[in-house]
Computed example of a mutant assay.
Amino acid sequence: MKKTVRVMQVLRHINFRSSQLKRLYGALFLAATLTMASCKKEDKIATPPSKYNNGFFVANEGWFGHETGDAHFYSYSGDSLTWNVYKTSNPGDSLGSAGNSLEFATIFNNKMYFVVKAGGPLVAADLNTMKVYLRNNSLPKNDGHAFAGIDQYRGLLTTGDGVYPVSLSTLAIDKKIDSISGYTGDVIVAGKYAFALSQTDGIVAFNTADYKFAKRFGKANQGFARAKDGDVYAATADSMVRINPNTLERSTVNLGFKVASPWGAWRHASICASTKENAIFIAPGSGFSGGTKAYRYVIGDASSLAQPFITLPTGQYFYGSAIGYNKATNELIALTVNGSITGNINRILFYDATSGELKKTVTYNGWFFPAMPVFMP
Rank of each mutant, 00 (worst) to 15 (best):
G202L: 13
K360N: 15
T4A: 12
L255D: 06
S340C: 06
H268E: 12
V374C: 04
T35C: 12
Q199N: 13
H268G: 06
S169Q: 14
D43A: 14
N128A: 14
V232C: 12
I173G: 08
T159H: 12
T292H: 00
F309Q: 02
H72A: 11
L24E: 07
T158C: 01
I107C: 01
L332D: 02
S97K: 13
K41D: 09
N128T: 07
G202I: 14
L156K: 05
N254K: 12
A302N: 14
Y153L: 11
Y351W: 04
I348N: 03
R226T: 11
R23K: 14
R226C: 08
K359V: 08
K141N: 15
F368S: 02
Q199I: 05
S179K: 06
E42T: 10
I299M: 05
S261L: 06
K3I: 05
G339M: 09
V5T: 14
I323K: 00
G202R: 13
Y364L: 06
I243Y: 05
D43S: 14
A125R: 04
T33M: 14
S94T: 03
S198T: 08
Y52L: 11
G55S: 09
T361E: 15
D178K: 13
D126Y: 11
N246Q: 11
M130E: 06
S355L: 10
V259T: 12
A214Q: 06
R250I: 03
F288R: 00
D229T: 01
G202V: 13
A328M: 12
I14W: 09
G343H: 05
H66R: 14
N136V: 01
E331T: 07
G339Q: 08
D229I: 01
S321A: 15
G92S: 08
R12Q: 11
K192C: 05
V187C: 12
N246K: 13
V7S: 02
F281Q: 06
T33I: 05
G62E: 04
K2C: 03
I188G: 00
V232I: 14
E357N: 09
